[in-house]
Design a protein around this nucleic acid. Structure first.
Length: 157
DNA sequence: GCCAACGTTGGC
DNA sequence: GCCAACGTTGGC
């Protein structure tokens, strides 16, 4: 199983929305590196759910991959904000996955606390200037964030 | 609202 | 293929 972090602006889609819906398409990724990582996601992979442009920004819970990468339907919808007229219909450029709700942390893990924590040294999302909305997460870092969030989850080894 | 960091676009 | 211009992200 691989482990990931995905960013979402809570004004657009929050952990509360995911909890209410149970699962949701994760659409609108329009960055090639993020897309490539989404294509490597497999059923059951766990995802740290990160609120960006939030007060405070940070990890708020966990999701899991419930459907592997498929063409993002919004790329061909002219009415969508995610419309990409350059994406060939017969060879779609952008992918989506479906994310299921796993848990909301008993306490949020603010970005500031993560940056200050030696246990998370080297974590991609903490690197200066990191704007990628999808990043892989080391097993040790994932477990550490679970601890900071007060999660009762245990990962398969 | 500012702006640093970074990705993409398109002229040449 | 270079790179200036432009657009976006996201913390602050």
């Amino acid at each position: 199983m691989r482990l990931w972090l995905m960013k979402s602006e809570p004004d657009v889609f929050s952990i509360t929305d995911l909890e209410r819906l149970g699962q949701s398409i994760w659409e609108g990724v329009r960055n090639y590196q993020a897309r490539n990582w989404m294509r490597e996601m497999r059923l059951g992979d766990l995802v740290l759910f990160y609120h960006s442009n939030a007060t405070p920004p940070g990890v708020v819970g966990v999701g899991k991959i419930v459907r592997e990468a498929y063409p993002d339907p919004f790329q061909h919808d002219p009415k969508s904000d995610y419309y990409d007229p350059k994406s060939p219909v017969n060879e779609p450029r952008w992918s989506a996955v479906d994310l299921g709700f796993v848990e909301r942390f008993p306490r949020e893990v603010p970005l500031e606390a993560m940056k200050a924590d030696p246990g998370l040294l080297g974590m991609k999302v903490l690197e200066k200037g990191s704007r990628l909305s999808v990043t892989p997460v080391d097993h040790a870092h994932f477990v550490w964030v679970l601890g900071l969030g007060g999660s009762a989850l245990t990962l398969p080894t």
